[in-house]
Amino acid sequence: MSDWKRHDPLNRNPATARSSALYRAIGLGSAKSGAHHWWVQRVTAVALVPLLVWLVASLLAHARGDHQVLALWLGQPAVAVTMAVLLMALFWHMKLGLRVIVEDYVHADRVKFAALIAVDLVCLALLAIGVFASLYLAFR
């Protein structure tokens, strides 16, 4: 894939290559993106701090209750909405973070693109399941 110009001084060009070091350092140039990813990762991180504190504190408060008590609590409108927001922040943050990990460590283009698609779809699926569960408890 895209063998016309690869970023790989680490694999070293074949001995026959005559491209300059600058050509390889420039690679495919700037993608002129990345700021949005960086910003949303911070926004979701900031949102997750109070949300996770709230979740852990609430779960501890209900630690003695049985399944029924917990389900009733989760079904309250305010709790269901907060849970939905938490899940969105969580899985969005997770998606962005996993993307970075894949980009860091996976260098074969085909595998990388497949992994990036999988990351996005799995996070979306997990989010859908979580939000559905919140709504289910609220409207049951």
């Binding site: 002129k32 993106s33 990345g34 700021a35 980009e103 860091d104």
Partner: peptide, 14 residues
Amino acid sequence: LDELEDPFKLYRCH
């Protein structure tokens, strides 16, 4: 800044 804004050139710094 245009030239630097890139997921790899700049944002690989963690």
